[in-house]
């Protein structure tokens, strides 16, 4: 199979507003795709349509060869689509380990009890949260919560991982840590679609970048192609990139 995720003319309207408009996109297994675009471009909405949070107003979402357009979020999760939230969503009163175990047993088909707990601990070790396993999720710092989100989504044993601004609000060291984690996840063969405002992250991580603007996909290409695309510079990147500089620290909104 050559495509894992295929979007055909996906549109999502909120009243008169087309938050996502006629998006065509196909993602091959193993790709790490960057989804960029200005605030309000429709990036989160697109993720919500893929995961079944919002129903597409029109268009088709295919995943793993099947039409998944009308699925509910829990059904999408069980088929192997995992996502992290732009605003982290732990179960605050549960322990860190329970948070991850929940993902393992409900989406990852791991048995309730010891099996799920062991699986959870493995993922927590991977993201460097093992020593927090028995702490309440609400006691974690923001950076830790973002890593918890990663551990949860890994426990779902996904084929496709949708990361919505996992680095927003993190400092430089924390971003570096998250970057190496995401690389590790990609190395496991998980296909990744990452929404990210930090160009440094996008450029160093992604095999391909797609650009959303006013709900429409205006460009798709390698990182080199994207930073030189006049429409992308106009709509999002600004002039610093046109000069051909690295300027990787820019774009701090979001």
């Amino acid at each position: 199979m050559t495509t894992l995720l295929q979007l055909e003319g996906v549109t999502r309207q909120f009243g008169g507003l087309k938050a996502v408009s006629g998006v065509d996109l196909s993602v091959a297994p193993g790709e790490v795709i960057g989804l960029i675009g200005p605030n309000g471009a429709g990036k989160t909405t697109l993720v919500n349509v893929i995961t079944g949070v919002h129903r597409a107003s029109s268009g088709i979402v295919r995943f793993d060869g099947e039409d998944v357009t009308g699925l509910k979020p829990f059904q999408a999760a069980r088929r192997g689509i995992a996502r992290t939230f732009q605003i982290v969503q732990p179960f605050p009163e549960m322990t860190v380990a329970e948070n991850v175990a929940a993902a393992a047993m409900f989406a990852g088909a791991v048995r309730y009890g010891d099996e799920a707990n062991a699986e959870a601990l493995g993922h927590l070790r991977f993201v460097g949260l093992a020593e927090m396993a028995d702490k309440r999720a609400s006691s974690l710092t923001l950076a830790m919560r973002k890593r918890l989100e990663l551990a949860k989504s890994l426990a779902m044993r996904p084929k496709l991982l949708l990361l919505d601004e996992v680095n927003a609000g993190l400092n430089a060291t924390e971003v570096d840590h998250a970057l190496s984690l995401i690389r590790g996840i990609a190395a496991r063969g998980v296909t990744i679609l990452i929404i990210e405002h930090l160009m440094k992250v996008v450029l160093s991580l992604c095999t391909r970048i797609v650009v959303l603007h006013h709900g429409e996909l205006i460009a798709s290409g390698t990182p080199q192609e994207i930073v030189q695309d006049p429409r992308v510079i106009q709509a999002y990147l600004g002039r610093r990139y046109a000069a051909g500089g690295e300027a990787a620290e820019g774009q701090s909104h979001g």
């Binding site: 995961t51 949070v53 509910k72 979020p73 829990f74 999760a77 069980r78 996502r83 939230f85 969503q89 732990p90 179960f91 605050p92 009163e93 549960m94 929940a102 993902a103 409900f106 989406a107 990852g108 949860k152 779902m156």
Partner: peptide, 15 residues
């Protein structure tokens, strides 16, 4: 308990 804590997150995790 997952639902009680955060229903949409529970949904997203496969509940």
């Amino acid at each position: 308990r997952c639902i009680q804590q955060n229903e949409s997150a529970a949904d997203m995790l496969g509940v």
